[in-house]
Design a protein around this nucleic acid. Sequence first.
DNA 1: AGCCTGACTTTGT
DNA 2: GACAAAGCCAGGC
Length: 125
Amino acid sequence: MKKTKKRTKQPVRVKKGYSFFEDVYEVVRLIPRGRVTSYGAIARYLGAARSARMVGYAMNCSGTVAPPVPAHRVLNRTGMLTGKRYFGSNGEMEKLLRAENVKVRADKVTDFDQLFWDPFEELII
DNA sequence: AGCCTGACTTTGT
DNA sequence: GACAAAGCCAGGC
């Protein structure tokens, strides 16, 4: 898929009572154990390709929602644990990933390409 | 309304 | 491949 359109400014799911964040949480909760994805992938899946930052921002508030969101499975496009400092203790995010057999080295997931979970291909809604 | 921030991504150098 | 800059848009003030 190419982005033939330059900028379609159409919001995807504008449900009343639900925010963009809720959609993000919903997708993140569906990430299988031991797999990871990127902020941009989630954003594209929601139709907001240019809202990758918002996905990250949503993760910032992920601790306030229930059920808990496995935010540690969401990384940036290079597989770096950019949000580990938001997990409170230093290294907790990496710990969670390793508990799922995800190898982390120098704040990066080594097998990011293999473990990458693409909502478009692996998630059918 | 306006300005600033940011757990991002893409593009150009 | 590394670095810088720009674009992005929802929230908070």
